[in-house]
């Protein structure tokens, strides 16, 4: 159980001046500005939940994660994770969490992966039997058997990320923090990583907190999302609900033989070329089935597909709505 209540955090940042004269002046006196990184942030995450933590760069995502990991102390407010205050009881706390920073590696660059793993076993004082079980399980699930003997420097980004994730799960943490785990990965690796995270969450009941800019991660993984902007929690709810709440409009893509059909005023044309037509419509006004029937009556349709709003579009809409 993770509880954050009324967390505040402010940073003081020196203002850098442009121009020669000002740079000289800054030698003697310097101006500072206060940045409210977190403003009264509160939320609760239950055991075994999978939460997507989203927001634009600089919104306060990583500050929150750092506080939950025990790296940072907040100015005020309380954070309790499994009954502990992370920054007061650091060592006991971090034993129960796993952290993956997508852009920084915890693997040794020049030695085989298995050596890094064994060092982690000693750092976390993992029981040999548990270590062996975990390693075997992770090797199978993440398909690591070929990689374990290779040094990290000769792995591809995707392979390395699989090893990173395994590394942070060796000590069977109750909570897993994933900071942009799919950044820079190719499509296949992304899918493997997502499937794996889902499984770990379902089978081990590991609580997963995921920050990402890739909305497909969110769509594939998390039911609940937390949106943060300018240091405030703006939204806390389920993805489906949010989708419903935002735009209801549907996108209709049809392919046809012969001449292009006329469309009515209730349909908005997005694209039309080479026997392909993309139309956007509001199902409340013009039901999708009616639209298909309407088009089928006017031309020979060869393919039809309907899609709702994507998570990507929805988040873009949210950002616009909250001016963040």
């Amino acid at each position: 159980m993770i509880t954050l209540s009324n967390i505040n955090k402010t940073f003081r940042v020196a203002r850098r001046q442009a121009g020669f004269g000002r740079a000289v002046k800054a030698l003697f006196s310097r101006e500072y500005e206060l940045i409210h990184a977190l403003n009264d942030v509160s939320f609760t995450i239950k055991d075994g939940e999978m939460v997507g933590y989203i927001g634009p760069n600089g919104a306060g995502k990583s500050t929150t994660i750092k506080i939950m990991c025990g790296i940072l102390t907040p100015d005020s407010g309380m954070c309790k994770i499994n009954g502990r205050v992370p920054w007061r009881d650091r060592i006991a706390h971090v034993r129960e969490i796993g952290v993956v920073f997508g852009q920084r590696s915890q693997l040794w660059w020049d030695v085989p992966i298995i050596d890094s793993f064994e060092l982690l076993r000693d750092i976390y004082k993992i029981d040999r039997k548990i270590y062996k079980n975990n390693l075997d399980e992770l090797t199978v699930l993440l398909d690591l058997s070929e990689l374990l003997k290779t040094p990290a420097r000769s792995l591809s980004l995707g392979q390395r990320m699989r090893c990173e994730i395994a590394a942070s799960l060796l000590h069977s943490p109750k909570i897993l923090f994933l900071d942009e785990p799919t950044i820079g990965l190719d499509a296949v690796s992304k899918m493997t990583v997502r499937q794996f995270i889902k499984r770990i969450n379902a089978e081990r009941g590991t609580t997963v907190i995921l920050t990402t800019h890739d909305m497909q991660d969110i769509e594939a993984l998390t039911e609940r999302i937390l949106l943060i902007g300018k240091g405030r929690i703006l939204l806390d709810g389920s993805l489906t609900e949010l989708k419903k709440r935002s735009s209801r409009r549907k996108t209709l893509v049809v392919e046809y033989n012969g001449s292009a059909p006329e469309i009515t005023d209730d349909m908005t044309l997005i694209e039309k070329k080479n026997g392909r037509l993309v139309i956007s419509l509001d199902p409340e006004i013009f039901p999708v089935s009616d639209a298909i029937a309407y088009l089928a009556a006017r031309t020979e349709l060869t393919d039809v597909s309907v899609s709702g709003i994507t998570a990507e579009e929805m988040v873009a809409e949210l950002y616009r709505e909250y001016h963040i």
Binding site: K66, C69, G70, I71, R90, I91, A92, V94, R95, I97, V99, F101, R104, Q106, I123, Y124, K125
Partner: peptide
């Protein structure tokens, strides 16, 4: 600078 120290802080040593 490169965040390696943060990594140390999330380990039980």
């Amino acid at each position: 600078g490169n965040g390696e120290f943060d990594r140390a802080l999330v380990r039980p040593r």
